[in-house]
């Protein structure tokens, strides 16, 4: 058995007495897509934001490549190759696509000034691959359509040699064609050996793309299962009732019936 790319062990975080994540453990292997499912408020986004450095956990350990790591802020996570596409996209609306692509990692000239021209040139290349119809490089991203904004956010996550990609509701704002495009992209990234956490409401999305699913409820892990070993009804049962089917590994949140 190979070492997991990421392992989060016994993670807890509370906001003012409410346990948003309660002793959750989750892992991810290279080239694997793990779907993270659950109702609104089940703690999926919170758990994942601990990994991406947006929140600091109260308890638990994080391992990358089997080595324990400390993630205090988004910079630490990025240094470990963990990139995130947030549900809100987290774009600076008032600057253009290139500035967003390189936000926090700007290309500089020899004189220590921003190399806007080089950044725009690179941005044109990346966007050309991701979304060939994208032309509005000079405009602030506020002026772009939902799909275009999404492709900027995706470009930013994959452009810097990410090894671990977190996608929080990546298709929520997209039409059917664009959703299919994101699906293709996930398959391609997976083939490159990148591990992906896919957070979604859409059960079909997850069963189509993920290798495993992990279900959360009330901040706890209900259980994990290989997608091809459980039925969609069984997954729904995990999400709604916290009922762990026989083929799944139960977590602390599983209801004993």
């Amino acid at each position: 058995m190979t070492t997991p790319l990421v392992e989060m062990r016994d993670i807890s975080i509370a906001f003012g007495g409410i346990k948003a994540v309660d002793h959750a453990s989750i892992d991810l292997y290279p080239g694997e897509v793990v779907g993270l499912l659950g109702h609104n408020g089940a703690g999926k986004s919170t758990l994942i934001k601990i990994l991406s450095g947006a929140y600091r956990r109260d308890q638990g350990e994080i391992y990358v490549d089997g080595k324990q790591v400390e993630i205090y802020n988004p910079r630490d996570a990025k240094a470990l190759g963990i990139e995130t596409i947030y549900q809100t996209l987290a774009l600076a609306d008032n600057v253009d696509a290139a500035a967003n692509l390189y936000l926090g990692r700007e290309l500089m000239t020899a004189y220590g000034t921003l190399d806007d021209v080089a950044m725009e040139a690179e941005c044109r290349k990346v966007m050309g691959r991701l979304n060939p119809n994208f032309r509005r490089f000079k405009e602030p991203v506020k002026a772009l359509s939902g799909g275009q904004r999404q492709s900027v956010a995706i470009a930013r996550a994959i452009h810097f040699n990410a090894r671990i990609l977190i996608m929080d509701e990546p298709t929520a704002a997209l039409g059917p064609a664009e959703t299919a495009q994101v699906g293709e992209l996930i398959k391609q990234l997976k083939a490159e050996g990148i591990g992906i956490f896919l957070i979604s409401h859409d059960l079909h999305d997850v069963t189509d793309l993920a290798d495993r699913v992990t279900v959360m409820k009330n901040g706890e892990i209900v259980g994990s299962a290989k997608v091809n070993e459980v039925t969609q009804d069984e997954i729904l049962g995990m999400i709604i009732a916290g009922k762990c089917p026989p083929n799944a590994t139960p977590g602390p949140g599983a209801v004993n019936l």
Partner: peptide
């Protein structure tokens, strides 16, 4: 977008 800036490190 202050939040985005923060998340960008």
């Amino acid at each position: 977008n202050p939040e985005a800036a923060e998340l960008a490190g």
